[in-house]
């Protein structure tokens, strides 16, 4: 299945802004993070379809996953 990963702030370094990932059925957010070589410690905010998600969340074809490192407030 195809997943759109949107990366922000420092996570873009060496990875790009938007990455299309091809994952096996039943893959979770953790699998996506592994595929992108993002260590869990660098993930502060994790959204699937704009809603909070955890690493063990199973993904579906076409999901949009937004990943932020620890960032600021305003």
């Amino acid at each position: 299945m195809r997943i759109e990963a949107r990366l922000f702030a420092t996570l873009r370094t060496g990875r790009g802004k938007v990455v299309e990932a091809e994952l096996a059925e039943g893959a979770t957010v953790q699998d996506l993070a592994d595929a992108l070589a993002i260590p869990p410690a660098e993930i502060a905010i994790l959204l699937v379809g704009g809603r909070d998600a955890r690493l063990d969340r199973p993904l579906s074809d076409g999901d949009v996953v937004s990943i932020f490192p620890p960032v600021g407030g305003g």
Binding site: F8, A9, T10, I45, S66, F68, P69, P70, V71, G72, G73, G74
Partner: peptide, 14 residues
């Protein structure tokens, strides 16, 4: 890390 690197504007995307 976050505020020193990007300031408050990093919130736009979040």
């Amino acid at each position: 890390t976050g505020l020193p690197t990007y300031g408050t504007a990093v919130l736009v995307n979040i």
